[in-house]
């Protein structure tokens, strides 16, 4: 059983998160400011930290930086501050993810699961580089062209053949931006006349399947007015 430290000065929020996480089978320890969180981390084994930013005594930014000094435990920032600047600050201070309040409980749980999986099985996935033939990997997204299987963080994702082909093509060429036309020509090997919308719809569907939050995709990025790409992670 994995232990998760939830730290927020709002006790009701901590309580609600506890309920969600306990349901998911996690053990939850609670803290109400940065100092308490640090004390707990030094005493107990913690597998993930959920950290609010604005807290009395010691704020989340400072706490995150202190934790990062000698711990590799994943940290998810949880804050009402939603400016780009705040997110960048959080990630720079050692956070692995940033969730803005008010959050969708399902999304929060998905992100917690993702981080836990990465942290506990660290190495196994990463060692599994593109050493096999016809296997394409970026971050925790893996496409095995031999078995036609797509997995995200080890979980299999069901894709239609068209979606699969598009994702395979983009993952094969990760980091490169392709316009709808280019994707069409490469996947269908045909002129893209009149089919542009279909690609966009497919991309939308793929995102809904592989991303935790399709509006803020991690793998399949939309560059509006230019094209799509699979992020090189």
């Amino acid at each position: 059983m994995y232990t998760i430290l939830v730290c927020d000065d709002d006790k009701e929020i901590v309580k609600a998160i506890e309920i969600y996480l306990t349901k998911e089978g996690y053990h939850v320890v609670k803290a109400y400011n940065g100092r308490e969180a640090l004390d707990i981390i030094n005493k107990e084994e913690v597998h993930l930290v959920l950290l609010d930013i604005m807290m009395p005594e010691m704020d989340g930014m400072t706490a995150a930086a202190r934790i990062r000094k000698d711990k590799t435990v994943p940290i998810i920032m949880l804050s009402a501050k939603s400016e780009d600047y705040d997110k960048i600050m959080g990630l720079n201070n050692g956070a692995d993810d940033y969730v803005t309040k008010p959050f969708n409980p399902l999304e929060l749980i998905a992100r917690v699961n993702s981080q836990i999986r990465r942290y506990t099985s660290l190495g196994s996935i990463h060692q599994e580089k593109e050493n096999e033939e016809n296997v394409y990997i970026t971050g925790d997204l893996k496409i095995n062209d031999n078995t036609k299987q797509v997995t995200v963080e080890g979980k299999e994702v069901k894709l239609t053949p068209t979606e699969y082909n598009i994702l395979k093509f983009l993952t094969k060429n990760k980091g490169i931006v392709f316009s709808i036309e280019q994707i069409y020509e490469n996947v269908w090997e045909d002129e893209a006349y009149g089919a542009e919308n279909i690609i966009a719809v497919h991309i939308r569907h793929i995102r809904e399947k592989i991303e935790i939050n399709p509006r803020e995709p991690k793998y399949l990025k939309v560059i509006w007015g230019i094209g799509y790409k699979i992020e090189k992670l």
């Binding site: 709808i180 542009e196 279909i198 690609i199 966009a200 991309i203 939308r204 007015g225 094209g227």
Partner: peptide
């Protein structure tokens, strides 16, 4: 930005 691409993307 390409206007056509953008509209296709958003429409999709």
């Amino acid at each position: 930005l390409k206007v056509k691409e953008l509209i296709h993307q958003v429409t999709g």
